[in-house]
């Protein structure tokens, strides 16, 4: 059965691939933990986000590319979620941002801006470079009550 209460939203097919490789690397059985939903790019993902928070999802993760301008991306996410009562920090948190739900009817939200929440850029799906994988795994664990990753985190 498809999991509907834990959802990870990614921007496009490439990002989807990254998540699968990441899960493989860390031995995360993602299919039993969360479903990955692939968007049609950033703008459409923002619209989808506004709907997803109003469904029965309890934990909602978002992995997107920072692209050229990280802060403008962040501002757009901020305003997309403001209407539902979410308060985001002024800039993304280095180890991944986690926002508590504003009320019991809205999910907890985690946001990861590729590559590392600090620098502009995109994921490196094709090269399979996981420079930031440990940090991403930690974010995933903090975000979920039960640790996703079995390999533990390199210090």
């Amino acid at each position: 059965m498809r999991i509907t209460d834990h959802v990870l939203l990614v921007e496009g097919r490439d990002d989807h691939e990254v998540i699968y490789q990441f899960c493989n690397y860390y031995g995360i059985d993602n299919q039993s933990l969360f479903s990955v939903e692939v968007g049609d790019g950033f703008d459409s993902l923002l619209k989808e986000l506004g709907i997803r928070v109003r469904t029965e999802v309890k934990v909602l993760g978002i992995v997107i590319d920072a692209d050229a301008n990280l802060s403008s991306r962040w501002e757009e996410i901020k305003s997309a979620l403001a209407g539902d009562g979410y308060i985001l920090p002024a800039s993304p948190i280095k180890g991944g941002t986690i926002i508590e739900s504003p009320n019991s009817n809205r999910p907890q939200i985690g946001i990861w801006l590729m590559p590392d929440n600090q620098e502009p850029g995109r994921n490196q799906a094709k090269q399979c470079k996981f420079d930031n994988a440990p940090a991403l795994a930690k974010w995933g664990d903090r975000f979920h009550s039960q640790p996703y990753s079995k390999r533990g985190h390199p210090q």
Binding site: E37, K47, E48, I51, R52, T55
Partner: peptide, 9 residues
Amino acid sequence: IITRKSIEV
């Protein structure tokens, strides 16, 4: 969007 993305409602 719900129908295009098959969002469970």
